[in-house]
Amino acid sequence: MAKHHIETTVNGDEIEFLCETEETLLDVLRDTLHLTGSKEGCASGDCGACSVMLDGRLVCSCLVLGCEVGGRRVETIEGMAKGEKLHPLQQRFLEHAALQCGICTPGFLVASKALLERTPDPTEHEIRYWLAGNLCRCTGYDKIVSAVMDAAVTMRKG
């Protein structure tokens, strides 16, 4: 059967692509659109490394079919920095050494941004539970949580 022709918006750009039914949004992002910042750690929704925003909702792109995103709004890690300016979360992750190997980092950043957009002043508890779907094996989460709290302070100041 013919591939699906999908028109959508990715990081504000209008995009067209072709995909098979069984291809996930993650497959499309990585293999078709060459946006490899979203990572595949498990392909089962258990690690969060493929986190993206879909119409303003945080989702695992490995659990969305490519053909579902027609006419919708996809935001990935590649769209997080604006021009030369890093997002405050990106900046704080660097300053707090909140990454070691870095494979989980895009997913954590996308998920953290979604949190701070809804909850500008989260507690440590809220951060930890919101990010429970993002696995990190290197850091023990300590510096990630600190970076998110610090970024929240920055963002509240505007």
Partner: peptide, 20 residues
């Protein structure tokens, strides 16, 4: 506590890992 030189690539999704 310097900023790591490979850091920006890793917070922007630019860094290339094995499957990239």
């Amino acid at each position: 506590r310097t900023i790591r030189p490979d850091g920006v690539d890793k917070v922007t999704g630019r860094a290339r890992f094995g499957a990239d």
